[in-house]
Design a protein around this nucleic acid. Structure first.
Lengths: 213, 213
DNA sequence: CGATTTCAAGAGTGACCGCTATGAAAAAGA
DNA sequence: TCTTTTTCATAGCGGTCACTCTTGAAATCG
């Protein structure tokens, strides 16, 4: 059987010598560990195994590379969370899977602790403000998705009608962000799971108005 | 009546011309807003109204200045939290006062959003690792104080005997850290208070083992 | 007063920042 | 083969980094 013809003929000039995806993964590791400002172009090129002109030719700028890295991070490491929200039949189940997953993911050996987005570029020099706003926007989108899933839970009768969807979403978001901080401070998976236990009991009491003093 | 003799005679050489406390407050604002790495010595000296030699003469280094700023931050802005833990008769009351206070404090107008310690220097260049560890240590101490207050609540019978003090402390700490992130992302006091509402209901269910499915 | 001590300011230290000009090398098209 | 196109590595751009040398002013001491 004939192989399908390669859809795009080989481009004109000298072919790229490095694997863009692999280089991106190396850059991801560096940005994750050192942060946007803490990672210098020299750190990045060393890890990626390329020279500065290659980096700028392929990604435009340090900020452009970071943007590509963020996309890759969300596709590779944020997929579990997204799937939890999509696949689980209940909002409660989605949140539980999300939080337990985060506890494991944030404390994986051979991987930088914490989340690359939840606690990234919180403070930075004036000149890097656009990057900070980009990451802040990603956190906002996460909160939106969470809130939408909760709202669906209310509509489907899983949660009481008076439930504060935004408050609940911000609550869950805060737990994830706090777990990311504590993971970076050295917390173990077991310690984070203890935290999650308390949070999930909160969820179970979350929709209703407080019952008394 | 004679005044008590000044305990320390005026020092020999030319006296310092700038007010160290005021300069410290100006530096605090800059570090708070831009972060440790994002704040350059030029930013700091401009805000403090002094020249680099004066800064280095008085504080030794950028890291030394940051250390002094952290002390001042804890004394000035962290005092409410400390007092809540000390003064409130119940752990529950302390946590409630702490969280509501944080919601207001993290969103004060004319002040940088979020906490200067809860989400500071999470990622940084290799060379600044000691600073990151210092701030991480401060967060650890906060968790310790929180856990101790909760343990006291258990001992005094306020909380059930089986309560997971560490899990509960980490839970409350995560809420504060998450609130700091969300405040920096633009959340309002009302939004953070909604989050706190959910968290406090969690607390009320927090000590007990889950009651069922 | 002169001597001593300490501070402040201008000016600049080498090193590193993000980024790029230059030109050789490697592919395709003619 | 020869031109065109693109990528590569060397080398280095102007600027800023944290930090300090040098000089002279402002205080106390004898």
């Amino acid at each position: 059987m004939k192989k399908t013809a390669t859809p795009q003929p080989r481009p004109r000039g000298r072919p790229r010598e490095f694997d863009e995806t692999k280089a991106l993964d190396r850059a991801l590791e560096v940005f994750w560990r050192l942060g946007y400002e803490g990672a210098s172009v020299a750190d990045l090129t060393r890890a990626m195994g390329i020279t500065p002109p290659s980096l700028y030719g392929a990604f435009g700028s340090k900020a452009g590379l970071y943007e590509r890295v963020l996309e890759r991070y969300q596709a590779e490491h944020g997929a579990d969370t997204t799937r939890a929200l999509m696949e689980e039949p209940t909002a409660r189940g989605a949140v539980e899977r999300m939080l337990r997953g985060a506890a494991r993911q944030f404390t994986r050996r051979r991987q930088t602790a914490g989340c690359m987005v939840a606690t990234a570029v919180l403070r930075c020099a004036e000149e890097n403000q656009p990057v900070a706003e980009r990451v802040s926007g990603l956190r906002g989108e996460s909160l939106q998705r969470l809130e939408a899933r909760i709202a669906r839970g209310i509509q489907e009768g899983e949660l009481p009608r008076g439930t504060d969807a935004e408050g609940l979403a911000r609550f869950v978001g805060a737990i994830v962000q706090g777990m990311s901080v504590q993971a970076q401070d050295g917390a173990t998976e077991a310690q984070l799971l203890g935290l999650v236990e308390v949070a999930l009991r909160a969820w179970d009491a979350g929709g209703r108005r407080p019952r008394g003093g």
